[in-house]
Amino acid sequence: MPMLQKFILFVAGVAAAWFAVGAQADGNGLLNVSYDVARDFYKDYNPLFQKHWQATAGQKVEIRQSHAGSSKQVRAVADGLDADVVTMNQASDVDFLAEKGLVARDYARRFPNNASPYTSTMVLIVRKGNPKALKDWNDLIKPGVQVILPHPKNTGNGRYSYLAAWGYALRQPGGNERSAQEFVGRLLKNAPLFAAGGRDATTTFMQRRIGDVLLSFESEAELIAREFGKGEFEIVYPSLSILTEFPVAIVDKVVDKKGTRKLAQAYLDYLWSPAGQENAAENYLRPRDAALLKKYASQFPPIRTFTVDEVFGGWSKAFPTHFKDGGTFDQLYQLK
């Protein structure tokens, strides 16, 4: 039966290939599980660290990258993706891993600056010449203004946009939880759609020409310019916005098993090194290093910001209050 033999041979060949792939995966290296737009940053950072590690420890190190939606990534880590380190765009994602016992509960204090080596903020991106003269958050609730943002409940960018508007309203004279919710409700009424993600919101705004203003990370504006041209839009810095932090953490369970703790620690520590900080600035992420921030001042205009911890008491409170089922977002969409 020649067919049967061929089939068995084939299966054996595939099995061999499989083991080959498996063996290659277990080399001396790190797996960095990250959110999707972090690719540019780590594409430049990894060679920097490899050079540094070669110089200091005399070892070649292989760094593998995984990028996808932030929450999806930490779910994968909880389900057994062998990440040595996680580099996320939202603390609630790392909190989830802490809850599952994969990451230390005090991960935010194991590195400086709330374990966030760089920051960004939410800005308003408007069309060339700012035809609707949008200057601040309160311009976005005016009738006839269309706001484009990613889904506020299901995406990281969307949640930051939501909290930025909420925090702004709260900090206005006489602002309270009720007025903030009303403010955000009016803003969301001006949203003709909720995009599937940050990138999709950009495409909708830039390519499909829908909406008057796009809510986005300051750092993504540069990516938008690369894709659609710099003169096509303007960045408007609101009077107050949210400081977005990008927490990093070592996945204890994995590094202990693989024996990569020292390497993982060095990898994350190096993010705060001058070279690491400068790399952040070059990728339009605000470095923590004050001197560098000054050096790149033209790129990072000063803006008044608040953190999630200051206004919302941390993500562990903000997330259930606003984004879980029945939270403030859902309340805005209850049938009356």
Partner: peptide, 9 residues
């Protein structure tokens, strides 16, 4: 999808 999300249309 990844490339698209990274602004590499």
């Amino acid at each position: 999808e990844i490339l698209y999300n990274e602004y590499n249309a």
